Amino acid sequence: MKLFSPSRHQRYISDKKYYAWFELAYTTVDVSAALLFVVGSVMFFSEDWQTPGTWCFLVGSICFALKPTLRIIREFRYIEADDYEDLAKRYENGS
């Protein structure tokens, strides 16, 4: 099984809840980034609002950087649970 696959995270009862919380956080960050980019774009129509619009773009970009970070954190949680078998299979398959 590959990393980031929901099926590999359902070995324990608590895993479904943990996985769901990470998916909720991931989606929240994704929506926040999109909204910040829309607001920043609208702000750029006025010269007076360009500086706050630039800040919206910066914060939105940070949100986009958080998305893969959340997934990596979630995967490390499974590594900490001594779930090395899937990681070894992924390495052997070259994926």
Rank of each mutant, 00 (worst) to 15 (best):
V31G: 00
E80V: 13
P6N: 00
A20S: 12
A25F: 07
V31K: 03
D82G: 05
L24V: 10
T51R: 15
V38L: 07
A34Y: 05
L58E: 09
Y84E: 10
F44P: 10
T27H: 09
Y18C: 11
C63G: 11
R74H: 13
T51H: 10
P68N: 02
D48I: 14
Y78C: 04
Y26V: 13
A25H: 02
H9L: 00
D15S: 08
Y26K: 08
T54M: 14
V42D: 06
K17A: 09
T69G: 15
Y78G: 06
Y91V: 10
E23D: 05
F45I: 15
Y19A: 03
A20Q: 08
L70R: 00
G40C: 10
M1D: 04
Q50S: 12
W49A: 14
S14K: 09
L87R: 09
P6T: 03
I73L: 00
P68R: 04
R71L: 06
E80Y: 15
L3R: 05
E23N: 11
S32D: 11
E85Q: 05
T54P: 06
F76N: 13
F22M: 13
Y91M: 12
E85F: 08
F37Q: 00
W21F: 07
S7N: 02
L35R: 04
Q50A: 15
S14V: 11
S5D: 13
E47R: 15
F76G: 08
E75A: 04
M1S: 08
E47K: 15
E80M: 14
T27V: 12
T69M: 09
G60D: 03
W49K: 06
V42W: 08
E80S: 15
Y19T: 07
L3T: 05
